[in-house]
Simulated scan of single mutants.
Amino acid sequence: MATVTFKNDIVCTLAGTEINVGDTAPVTTVVNCDPMLQDETIGGEGKVQLVVAVPSLDTGVCDAETRRFNAEAASLEGVEVITVSMDLPFAAARWCGAAGIDNIKVCSDFRNKDFANNYGVLLADGPLAGIMARVIFVVGKDGKITYKQVVPEITEEPNYEEALAAATAAC
């Protein structure tokens, strides 16, 4: 099983089915915060998705990451950007309103943790057990994973340029 660190010294194991580049992206349902409590599908064929898993929107790094992808999404032609956390949709909606998030979908995996388990990003142990690691996937139009970035230290931001280039290349 893959691992990430928290504050560089606590190793957290990732649970679920590990998905890698070339694998078919599992079709999974998460809960959107706008429109509130509507199902949103991750995976499947026919569109390019940049899927950003974050631990919680209420942390500085997740806040900065989600704001950055929201700003960048405006120039990503043909790419659906979805940020997923375990935050309740009501809390996510409040955060989105305060942060001015309007170019991406912000969703929750709180119901069944299907996304976290199906994509292998659920933290199984440590102080953050039960939430997601910081991981980015690009799902191509053919429904296959074309890019994956697991941020090794959960308190650090991802490589935005690499992820955005991968999303653009998948179009």
Rank of each mutant, 00 (worst) to 15 (best):
V21Q: 04
G22V: 09
D23T: 12
A25N: 03
A25M: 05
V27N: 06
V27P: 01
T28H: 02
T28I: 13
T29P: 00
V31F: 03
N32P: 01
N32F: 00
C33I: 00
M36W: 10
Q38P: 00
T41D: 05
I42E: 04
G43F: 08
G44T: 07
G46P: 10
G46H: 08
G46F: 11
V48S: 07
Q49H: 10
V52T: 11
V54L: 15
S56G: 15
D58Y: 15
T59V: 12
T59E: 13
G60C: 14
A64D: 11
A64R: 13
R67N: 12
R68E: 15
N70A: 08
N70G: 06
A71L: 13
A73W: 07
V79K: 04
E80F: 01
D87N: 15
D87E: 09
L88K: 09
L88M: 13
F90Q: 05
F90R: 03
A93H: 08
W95R: 09
G97L: 07
G97A: 11
A99V: 07
I101F: 00
I101W: 01
V106R: 00
S108H: 07
N112I: 01
K113M: 14
F115P: 04
N118E: 15
N118M: 09
N118F: 02
Y119D: 01
Y119L: 07
V121E: 01
L123C: 03
P127F: 10
A129Y: 09
A129S: 14
G130V: 06
M132Q: 13
A133P: 01
A133G: 04
I136G: 01
F137V: 04
V139P: 02
D142A: 03
